[in-house]
Simulated assay, not measured.
Amino acid sequence: MVDFELDDQRDSNYDRSDRDITSTDEFIQRVLIFLNTNIGEIPWNLDFGIDQNQVFLDIKDQAALSVDFNEWLTVQFEDEIASATVTKVDYNQRKATIYIAITMLDGSKLNITKEATIDGI
């Protein structure tokens, strides 16, 4: 049996069949699903997700974003994540790319990005 691969967008890449999914790929996918879900959006799990409105409010304040993402991620993934820090925010017209460095409980480090539309700023 062959697993499918994730492309650089962290989406499934069905064209390749020569690589198995690693546990790191699966974990990053779980984190991105969590970060891209608004809290209360899923009716059967109202506590899942982050407050997207808070991201919009803090989008120009990297320190505040760091506090927000650290709290959200360490609570949701308490058995896996030790800390999360926003390392950079790039702005391109109406889109912001948030770069997040995650330190796992075992000391390993991961880097992920989250994109946000920043209308009105």
Rank of each mutant, 00 (worst) to 15 (best):
D11G: 00
D15L: 11
Q54P: 00
F27K: 00
N53L: 14
L35P: 01
Q54I: 05
Q52D: 13
V55E: 06
Q29L: 13
R10S: 11
I21W: 07
T24R: 11
I28H: 02
N38C: 01
F27Q: 02
N53F: 13
P43Q: 09
Q52F: 12
F27D: 01
D25V: 00
N36Y: 12
I28S: 03
D25G: 09
G40S: 03
Y14G: 12
I50P: 00
D51N: 15
Q52C: 04
F34I: 03
T22V: 07
Q54M: 14
D20G: 05
R30E: 15
I50E: 04
N13C: 06
E26W: 02
Q54E: 15
N36C: 02
Q9E: 15
F48T: 08
D11F: 01
I21C: 10
E41R: 05
R19F: 03
Y14D: 11
D51L: 10
N53K: 14
E41K: 05
T37C: 01
I33S: 10
I42M: 10
W44D: 14
G49R: 09
Q9V: 01
Q9N: 15
V31C: 11
D20C: 01
S12T: 12
G49F: 08
F27H: 01
D11H: 05
R30Q: 15
D15M: 08
E26A: 14
R10I: 10
